[in-house]
Amino acid sequence: MRVLYFAWVRQKVGVAEEEVSPPESVRDVAGLVAWLAARSPGHAAAFAQPRQVRAAVNQDFAAPDAPVRPGDEVAFFPPVTGG
């Protein structure tokens, strides 16, 4: 599974992307967040306030209960501020 980070989420995690293999018990975005947060202090800081972090699965915005599977591209980022 490919995980991408953007904006301050990327800065806190310390990398722009990483390849991860979460256990089978990780089935949705919220589960992946909980699993990722335990990987390093940087991950923990990025996900300290999960409500401030948005997600996309395979480049579509995704809610916390959206399923994630091996091979997916999952991205985490703050609320968008373009325009």
Binding site: F6, A56, F61, F77, P78, P79, V80, T81, G82, G83
Partner: peptide, 22 residues
């Protein structure tokens, strides 16, 4: 402004910076 994935970071003259909040 609310649905396209862009993020703005502000850089100031003194060298400080901050992410724009939604």
């Amino acid at each position: 402004k609310t649905r396209a994935p862009f993020w703005k970071r502000e850089e100031f003259a003194g060298g400080t910076e901050r992410w724009v909040e939604a």
